[in-house]
Each structure stands twice: as C-alpha cells, then as structure tokens.
C-alpha cells in the first residue's frame, strides 16, 4: 500500500532574498513497507518527524531524496497527485480546521464532489460514509453543534466518501474527551476490520496502539524501532529515553517486576495482567 525507500526531507529556512539559509533534516532515509489492510501505528516525540512522514503519504510533501509509492504511484509524479490524494486520505488533530460545510452531509459530500463524482453517486457515498462512522442520524445537523469526537468522525466520513484504500490519522484524538477518543479509535478499527481500509495512526496515547498490527517508532527523522505492539512495548526503558511511554498495564507490570514479582515481559492489556497475577497468586 505504502512503500518508502531512502525517504529524506528537509525543512529549508530562507533569508530575505529567498536563498536557502539553513536546512533541517526532518525525515532521514526512511525505508518502510506497509501492506494493504493493516492497522499501523507511528509513535515518536514532538519533532521526531512522524507528521512530516505522514504528509508524504498523501503528497502534501514530496521527498527531497528517495521515493515514496502509494499503491505503486510515485508521489513525485505530479499527474498522479489527485489519484494519490483520493487513495490515501488524511485526518488531522483539530476537527475545527477541517470541517467546511454548514451541514454535516454537505461537508462529507465536498470530497467526492471535488473529484467530479455524479450527484446521485455523491449522495450514496455520503450516506454510506456517515453510516460507517455512526453519524448518519446527524446528517442534517450543523457541524458546529457537534462534540469533538463527533466532528472527527465527520472528518473521517469526509475522507471515506472519496473511497480511499488508506487513511492517515495524525493525532486525531489529542483534543478529545475520553468518550470522543474511544469513538474515534473504534471507528478506525472498524473501518480497518470491516472495510479492509489500511489505517496509519499517529498518536501520543499508548493505549490506542495496543490493537495495532505493527508499530513504527521514530526519533530524529529515522525509524528506530519497529515490530508488534508486544515487541515494542517490551522495551520500557528505551521508549522512555525516546520521550515516550507504554500502556498503563505494561507500566504496572514493569514496576512489579522491579519489585521482584515474576511477570513475563510484554504485557499490554489489563486482562492479561489480571490473569498473570491470579496465576501467580494461585501458585503461592
């Protein structure tokens, strides 16, 4: 679905005459391969390059060096730009910056309308997409009366209406309350499971990563760690050094290990830790 080879990107600083004054490398020789239908998470501290990488996936940015392919299309080929953006949709952190319509269904219809989809087909897609994110009953509402989680789901529906194969979510839950956070993550998981859409989730909430198929960890523009959530979250100390964290159950298991309780590495969920602890207790 997405493949990068030697992907490198610089932010350039220009002086008053427009000459390049300094260059900061934001993404540094990244190689990655994301297969279709997977749920992928990208972790990394602020400034680690994860959002810059994400912006390459729908060709908001194009590589300075190396290549990125979306569905086999090189993002540097300008004539492929619209196909790429239709194929890989993007949802950002702040819902208020990405909703433009005055009525929910109009907002969702904006994408396919822009692609030149016939009117009947647009309405069909609007209905399907709102249904897929659980927002169909709000179709005639004004977006500004919705909660943050509902707005984010409308934003996801807007991307869905373009029939993408891949959705990149860049910290979609950072501004949401617990319920909103849950509804957005469950929506992403359902679209992945039921519609087979590849999900690339960027987040600072470790709990949201537990169910992912594969996790990439970035630091200084490079992929410094990757693997299943269990492999990645087994490395508590290394993640802390990268300004990251682990899920709460993993953290408690780690704390108990330090106190001499014999627990296995890589516990991710509350239920696993409860079972392990009960097993230990029964042997005492």
């Amino acid at each position: 679905m997405v493949r990068a080879e030697g992907l490198t990107f610089y932010y350039e600083r220009l002086d008053e005459e427009g000459n390049v004054e300094s260059k900061k490398r934001a993404v540094d020789h990244v190689d990655l391969h994301i297969r279709p239908g997977k749920f992928i998470a990208i972790l990394g501290h602020n400034g680690s390059g994860k959002s810059t990488l994400a912006k390459h996936i729908n060709a908001i940015l194009t590589p300075a060096e190396g290549t990125l392919w979306v569905d086999g299309m090189d993002t540097k080929e300008e004539e492929k730009l619209w196909d790429i953006r239709q194929d890989a949709g993007m949802v950002f952190q702040n819902p208020d910056n990405q909703i433009i319509g005055t009525v929910v269904e109009e907002d969702v219809g904006f994408g396919p309308e822009n692609l030149g989809v016939p009117t009947d087909e647009i309405w069909k897609r609007v209905e399907e997409s709102l249904d897929a994110v659980g927002m169909l009953k709000y179709r005639h509402h004004s977006p500004n009366k919705l909660s943050g989680g509902q707005k984010q789901r409308v934003a996801i529906a807007g991307v869905m209406a373009m029939h993408p194969r891949c959705i990149v979510l860049d910290e979609p839950t950072a501004m949401l309350d617990p319920n909103g956070r849950k509804s957005v993550i469950q929506t992403a998981q359902r679209l992945n499971r039921e519609e087979g859409i590849t999900i690339i989730l960027i987040t600072h909430y470790m709990e949201e990563v537990v169910e992912a198929d594969h996790v990439f960890v970035m630091d200084e523009g490079r992929v410094v760690m990757e693997g299943s959530p269990r492999q990645v979250f087994s490395q508590v100390e290394e993640l802390k050094k990268l300004r990251l964290d682990v899920p709460q159950a993993t953290l408690l298991a780690f704390e108990l290990q330090k106190r001499g309780v014999r627990l296995p590495d890589g516990i991710l969920r509350n239920e696993e830790l409860v079972d392990e602890l009960c097993r230990l207790k029964s042997k005492m």
């Binding site: 950072a174 501004m175 600072h204 300004r243």
Partner: peptide, 9 residues
C-alpha cells in the same frame, strides 16, 4: 498537555 508527547506532558 494536549498534543504533547508523554515526556513533554
């Protein structure tokens, strides 16, 4: 702390 990485938080 909205939007900050865990260490920043």
């Amino acid at each position: 702390t909205a939007g900050l990485d865990p260490k920043g938080r």
